[in-house]
């Protein structure tokens, strides 16, 4: 009985830990990827943030799980195999930059070897916003514990831009914005109830890309 109240509170709070998603696809899919490969790259040129590598991996995993015929080249492997042309200093910001890159013979040969059809650039980040609450933790010879309650908001905002290597053109843009509130009640032991904000953004953007790349299949 004495555990019932905390349990009910936790279950109630779990219900509140949700993430809202706002997605938008700018161009309708026209043709799928065929038998080529796609690489998903994060933008890393902003001074105060990097698009998280694990977020990029998450999108790639979502696409591969959804359609095993799509070859997703891992970001690190691609960037290393074309070093130094996709470093923050040198990565092309527009499709025109890619044209210039393709005039360098070893780069063009490498891209042909990789059988690359699409390049997807993802720009954005997940960050904590407002936070409230207090928590006090203590330790004594008899033991330790915390008491209090904390809450904070998290927002994710990502935009993906798709470049088609065959047409040398930007062919699509899509975005996902998610937000959520996390809670951490503590009665002796802190229990983090984390809103899956970044995961939701990953599923949203991953699904939009999956539909785009699977069109016509």
């Amino acid at each position: 009985m004495r555990f019932a109240l905390p349990l009910i509170t936790i279950l109630f709070l779990c219900g509140c830990v949700t993430a809202n998603v706002d997605e938008m696809t700018f161009d309708a899919p026209t043709a799928g990827i065929g038998d080529g490969a796609v690489v998903i790259l994060g933008r890393r040129h902003a001074p105060d943030y990097d698009t998280e590598p694990d977020f990029i991996d998450c999108i790639g995993d979502h696409i591969t799980r959804g359609n095993s015929s799509i070859t997703v080249i891992p970001e690190r492997k691609f960037v290393d195999s074309l070093y130094p042309w996709f470093e923050p200093r040198t990565a092309p910001l527009g499709i025109e930059g890619l044209d210039r890159l393709m005039t360098i013979e070893p780069v063009a040969n490498k891209i042909v070897d990789l059988n690359l059809n699409y390049m997807v650039w993802v720009d954005g980040r997940t960050q904590d916003t407002n936070s409230a609450g207090t928590m006090t933790c203590g330790i004594s010879p008899a033991g330790g514990g915390c008491f209090g309650f904390g809450t904070w908001g998290t927002e994710s905002d990502y935009e993906a831009t798709i470049w088609n290597f065959i047409n040398n053109a930007e062919v699509g843009r899509m975005s996902a914005s998610t937000s959520g509130q996390s809670y951490m009640p503590a009665v002796v032991v802190p229990i983090p109830l984390i809103a899956p904000v970044q995961d939701t953004a990953c599923q949203s953007l991953g699904q939009q890309l999956l539909e785009y790349l699977s069109a016509g299949q």
Partner: peptide, 13 residues
């Protein structure tokens, strides 16, 4: 490590 990679990118370009 990122700075070294950037040094290489800057050197080459």
């Amino acid at each position: 490590v990122m700075a070294l990679r950037d040094a290489g990118a800057n050197f080459i370009t």
